[in-house]
Amino acid sequence: MSSNEMRDSIDGVQQALAERSYLADRGLATTVHLALKLGKPVLLEGEAGVGKTELAKVVADALGARLIRLQCYEGIDVAHALYDWAYARQMLYIRTLEATGDARQGEEVLDELFGPRFLERRPLLDAIACDDEIPPVLLIDEIDRADDEFEAFLLELLSDFQVTIPEIGTITAERRPVVFLTSNRTRELHEALKRRCLYTWVELPDLEREIAIVRARVPTAPERLAAQAAAFVHELRTLDLTKQPGIAETIDWTQALLALGQEELEAGVVDLTLGSVLKFHEDIGRVRDADLQQLVEQARTAADAQTPAG
């Protein structure tokens, strides 16, 4: 699948993602298609581990574009996100000029000091100033962790795709990058930022789709094992847990079971590997209290219903 077909239709998007082991439903594929067509950023919200970040990576791969990732955190600022000057190198350069007795004019030296050579590009500037043939995919991860002010700053950036560096001037993106923002909803994002984005809530998949995802991601796993692992995680999600396991956990766990040479789910091994699925001490305790053997049985039955070959 060439990147052109990916750009042309929703089917193309769905197929290109599937080829890279990302099974998107029609709704998500439509959103990606619209993002490519309308040139709008996509805001992905959803529980941890449903594949928000992964989507951006896979889309970048499918487009043959470079992925530029900005991980947000509390207190992130322009020097970390956009650009900074390489102070140490500037200082050294000045000293070198002095030592070699360079006779150039001050103005000239200054221009050089505050020119592209000493500019350290951070992800956002990188995405805008990128001169690749194919525009890059910019992933702004966990935007809800950054401060409000940073959001306001992004707002400006996402509407014009240009930045102004006082010493150099304004840099405008020649081709707009494809932008994905992800949020875990630790706080509500500003309305103004949301308005510029296509909003998508990424759901946990149903059993059938999750089995398909596990099989696509862990192709070496036996079909029964993949189905049973997915079914077991689905059983877990019905329990009252502190943190529900996401798809990422199901995949991790299947890999763990595979590494232990399991062909099928057994209560003993489940007990040993529970730590790959559940990340809270209380949750592990709760699942052990609930009858593990019975949960495994239920998962097997559910898995058999999904795989008619049995």
Binding site: T31, L34, E188, K194, Y199
Partner: peptide, 17 residues
């Protein structure tokens, strides 16, 4: 296609879960 219309409207008109 219903699912496409639904997704297209949802991602443009709605901004919170």
């Amino acid at each position: 296609r219903r699912d496409e219309v639904y997704a297209a409207l949802a991602c443009t008109l709605i901004a919170r879960r």
